[in-house]
Design a protein around this nucleic acid. Sequence first.
DNA 1: CCATGGATAGCCT
DNA 2: GGCTATCCATGGT
Length: 214
Amino acid sequence: MTQAARLSRDFYERDTVTVARALLGQRLVRIVAATDGRGSIRLGGRICETEAYGGPGDPASHAFRRTPRSEIMFGAAGVAYVYFIYGTHHCINAVTEPPGVPGAVLIRALIPDENVAEMRRRRGMADPATSALDPATSALRGVADGPGKLCQALGITLAENGVDLTASDALFVEVDGSVVGEQVRATPRVGVRGDAEARSRPWRFIWLAPAPRS
DNA sequence: CCATGGATAGCCT
DNA sequence: GGCTATCCATGGT
């Protein structure tokens, strides 16, 4: 079977906002052991929402301060930065920019399209076959439509912090076309401190071709 | 709207 | 070392 191309170091080693925009439409893939213990299966989906996090000038970024936790954001691009938040959820970012320049893109939502039933199980959701919901339209809702949800659906925890997305066989991003030219919503963060430029800069990108998260 | 609950950062003694 | 605020998420009300 042919292997889809994987995003390279060069892809990630660019301006954070550019990478956040370019990740839309690509596929986040996670390989996990099959439930019968033999072989492995793919979990994943198309990235439909991202958010750029900058360096010292971005108060909402963990790299606002250089600490042991945020040090990874100052390192090699294409590495996964996973953090645990609110005592419950994990969030996965892709490190951006050349070494020494901090930056990361938070992956906020996926459109699940591989082994959705397994991802639903990992989310604690009902089997769509026995659900009253229409599987054709509702089986995807709630599975990966949020940064914490997609990590739970894909089994991403702090153990995946530092994984090289350009080299790992268990966690990576595949090229699945670009959404350049398609409809994308870019919005600044509101309610954060910083100068006028920082507040008005586009940070979050939502792919409007499919239904984004609610 | 509100409760949740673990890792982290910063400040303290 | 301890102690506390914060974390712009999620699920249930």
